[in-house]
Computed example of a mutant assay.
Amino acid sequence: MKKLRLLLLPFSVLYGLVTAVRNVFYNKGIFSSVRFSVPVIAVGNLSTGGTGKTPQTEYLIRLLSPLYNVAVLSRGYGRKTNGYILADENADAHMLGDEPFQFYTKFKQHINVAVDANRVEGITNLLKLSPVPDVILLDDAYQHRKVKAGFYILLTAYGDIYADDFILPAGNLRESRAGAKRAGVIVVTKCPPNISAEEQDAIKKRLNPESGQKVFFSCIAYDDLVYSQSTTTTAAEIKSQPKVLVAGIAKPEPFYKHLHQEGDVVKTYPDHHDFTETEIKELIQLSETKPIVTTEKDYMRLNGRVPQDRLFYLPIMSRFVNGSDDFDKTILNYVERSTRNSRLH
Rank of each mutant, 00 (worst) to 15 (best):
M1F: 10
L4T: 13
R5C: 07
L7G: 11
L8P: 01
L9S: 09
Y15W: 12
T19C: 05
N23K: 12
Y26L: 05
N27Q: 13
K28V: 11
G29E: 08
S32M: 05
S32R: 14
R35M: 08
S37D: 14
A42C: 11
G44I: 06
N45S: 15
T48W: 11
T48K: 03
L60C: 09
S65A: 15
Y68F: 15
V70F: 07
A71G: 08
L86E: 09
A87M: 10
E89A: 12
A93W: 12
H94I: 00
F103E: 02
F103L: 05
F107S: 02
F107E: 05
K108E: 06
V113L: 10
N118E: 07
V120W: 02
V120K: 12
E121G: 14
E121N: 15
E121K: 14
G122N: 03
T124L: 02
L126Q: 04
V135F: 04
F151K: 11
Y152W: 08
I153M: 13
L154T: 02
T156N: 06
A157P: 14
A157D: 12
G159V: 09
Y162R: 04
I167C: 12
P169A: 01
P169L: 01
A170Y: 06
G171M: 09
L173A: 04
A178Q: 12
R182W: 04
A183S: 09
G184H: 12
V188Q: 09
C191V: 10
N194L: 11
S196W: 11
S196R: 10
E198Q: 14
I203F: 08
R206V: 04
L207T: 05
N208C: 10
S211C: 01
S211I: 12
V215E: 07
C219Y: 15
C219L: 01
C219S: 15
T232M: 12
S240E: 11
P242A: 13
L245A: 04
V246T: 03
K251Y: 13
P254A: 07
P254V: 09
L259H: 08
Q261F: 01
D264G: 04
D264M: 10
H272P: 03
S287Q: 08
S287E: 06
E288K: 14
E296S: 13
M300T: 14
G304Q: 09
P307Q: 11
D309Q: 14
I316C: 04
R319Q: 13
N322E: 13
G323M: 09
F327W: 13
L332W: 03
N333Y: 06
Y334P: 00
Y334S: 01
S338D: 05
N341K: 14
